[in-house]
Write a protein that binds this DNA or RNA. Structure first.
Lengths: 107, 107
DNA sequence: TTGTATTGTAACTTATAAAGTTACAAATTA
DNA sequence: TAATTTGTAACTTTATAAGTTACAATACAA
């Protein structure tokens, strides 16, 4: 069956932690430990995000935005895409049962 | 003091529940109870979102997207804006202490 | 090669919050 | 007035972000 509709055909969006891991940290040339200190979070939090085991929360997005002089939105949008993708590719049974609204013919 | 920088000058973004309350429900002409049933969530969940007492989660965004034939992103972006605004206008002390990264002169 | 720094992660605790259920009073509407 | 709808309190359950401590495995630098 060549299904093309389900939006699940797109591959999983990039986790913001991957950007941190592959682009930001190498670029800045600082350790995870240093980043954690500067953002005032635990080393563990950085490690888990970098390995994509945790979502990058709104709080972390703001911290990064301050530190990197970017916007919180740019970070959160990435996470949002991951969140949506994961829910859709896991609860598809459930969501399939939600029927589209149709206007009723007036009696 | 005429401060103009702090991004807190913008007023609080619209909660997605307000759209549901003011636009969607009147437009569709259905009750909260009916919406809850169709989305397969509890009546309470709808009530709390509509009264802006809870965030509209990714899960709810997907349900609404199915029901209304819109995108989850359109709903989640609104919530994201609210989340960021609330954190920034409440933890500003904390975030102020996160210093911008500066490249060190190579030794 | 030895020693220091860095990292990954397990185990545990704490705190927060989304969501459900039940119940009841108030308000709305038919 | 009678039925429907709504707001919300009280409570429980479930999930998870985040911290701390500790230890083993690398990686790296002198």
């Amino acid at each position: 069956m060549t299904m093309q509709s389900l939006r699940s055909n797109k591959r999983k969006p990039t986790h913001p932690g991957a950007i941190l891991r592959e682009d930001i940290l190498p670029e800045l040339g600082i350790t995870q430990t240093d980043l954690a200190d500067r953002l005032k979070v635990s080393r563990r939090t950085i490690s888990e995000i970098i390995h994509e085991r945790r979502p990058l929360t709104a709080d972390m997005a703001i911290r990064l935005a301050h530190f990197l002089d970017t916007t919180p939105e740019s970070w959160l949008n990435m996470q949002q895409a991951v969140d949506i993708w994961e829910l859709q590719n896991g609860n598809d049974k459930l969501y399939k049962n939600i029927k589209k609204f149709v206007y009723e013919a007036a009696a």
